[in-house]
Computed example of a mutant assay.
Amino acid sequence: MIHHAAPIGRPGPGLPARRSADPLPQLLRQLAARAGDACLFDHVASRPWCSAMFQGRRHAITLRLEGADTGARADALTTGLPDMEWSLSGHFVADMVVDERLDRADGVTLILSALTIEDW
């Protein structure tokens, strides 16, 4: 008997249906709450990602901090970022890193990458 693999995003025989909702809005809300006042998202993008065993999404986030104490706020946000706990419905954060930090006179810009995996 030959089994055909199900296309990405569709369950194969006997596998549970996978969620397709993008967890990015939840992640952005929690990131904004941790960043505090005067935080702006200059760029956000999300695209599907999969491996042989997992399915999820890869996220690119550009976050700008403005106002008082931006350097200290950026330090507080990024310290331990890869180990922070996030509460995402149907997903978990497998990886989140700071790709670049730009300190300027008017604030700090953080360029972040995150990988979320469907939790089923």
Rank of each mutant, 00 (worst) to 15 (best):
G90E: 06
L28P: 02
L27E: 07
A114Y: 00
L115I: 13
V108Y: 00
G90V: 06
A5Y: 00
A94R: 12
H91F: 12
S89Q: 11
A105N: 05
R64C: 05
S20H: 08
A60K: 05
A72G: 07
D83F: 09
V93N: 04
F54N: 14
V97W: 02
G9Q: 06
P16L: 13
V108K: 02
D83V: 10
A74C: 08
Q30P: 02
L63C: 10
L15P: 00
G71K: 06
A74G: 09
M96C: 14
D119W: 03
D95N: 13
H4P: 01
R101L: 06
A5T: 08
D22Y: 02
C50D: 07
R19M: 04
S20G: 14
P82I: 15
L65I: 12
L77T: 08
D69V: 06
P48F: 05
V108F: 02
W86T: 15
A74F: 02
P11E: 06
I61P: 01
A33G: 07
P11R: 14
I117W: 00
S89T: 14
A32L: 10
S87Y: 03
G90T: 09
Q30I: 10
R29N: 06
S51W: 02
A68E: 12
A68R: 13
F54D: 14
T79C: 08
A72Y: 01
S20M: 09
L77C: 08
A114W: 00
S87E: 13
L65M: 10
G67C: 08
L77F: 03
I8L: 12
G9T: 11
M53Q: 13
A38V: 04
R57H: 07
A35F: 01
Q26Y: 01
A68F: 01
E118Y: 01
